[in-house]
Amino acid sequence: MSGKRVTFKNFWLAILLILPQLFLVFTFFYWPAGEALYWAFTLEPPFGGEQQWVGWQNFETVFADPLYWNSVKRSLLFAFSSTALAMGIGLLLASFVDRQLAGYKVYRFIYFWPYAVAAPAVGLAFRFIFAPDAGFVSAINVWFPGLWNPALDGFDAMVLIVLANAWSMVAYNFIFFLAGLQSIPRSLVEAGAMDGAGAVRRMRDLQLPLIAPTFFFLIVINITDSFVNSFGIVDITTGGGPARATDLMVFKIYSDGFKGKDYSLAAAQSLVLMLMVCALTFIQFRFVERRVHYS
């Protein structure tokens, strides 16, 4: 916070230097967002032409639709379960590597890889692995016939996309948790061991409170990511089904807008999602800001 601020003497040079970045941000964020804002208050013919101003009608339609609330509910369920899973596993792996269990150098290196895999690729891999008839997991159906079928069972489908999303987020969480754990002086954890605390107790009483800022940061990132970046996985694995069991908000926006060609309805939903993510981030950062930092 008290670091020296680098200032440019030449104001116009500074403007010139940030212009390319501003141009990108404008082209790919502000412009589409502005367009969506306009569409949300109009009825937009799918193949162009005169739009009509309809005020709040699109929002009223969205909020009056029980299927929209279904997708909100599914999104929340998805976000919270995949966040909990991804953070739990990330923390577990990070604590293994932090304790330098055998082979930790290799794990430290390879655990990060899943994060580099694009969501549709993750979806495709999970679709094959978890295919009920031919996938790796189909063995379950040999032992317990009909137990696993994400094409028919909404719960299985939700489990599938939660697993896929958590898998791709574990790597990110792992790296941050590991950095957090390694910033805690080793002797502090050792003092805990001398005081009689086992590994789990030390994690709960000493390490977790000390990496609380990292922890809350990751909650924000994970939940936001689950809301926004889940499209690729849903599209490839379940397509929102069966019977809308995995119809997440972001997927519904896509199917209403680009498949159903109802841009206005999709734009209204995008705005709601955007405000939701903003609010979530705001609340969580306020919470994080208030956390005591120890040095």
């Binding site: 002797s187 502090l188 050792e190 003092a191 805990g192 001398m194 000493l206 000390l210 005591v292 040095s295």
Partner: peptide
């Protein structure tokens, strides 16, 4: 054990 840097729990 008493550690060199005391290793007190800061929180």
């Amino acid at each position: 054990m008493v550690f060199q840097n005391y290793a007190l729990y800061p929180h």
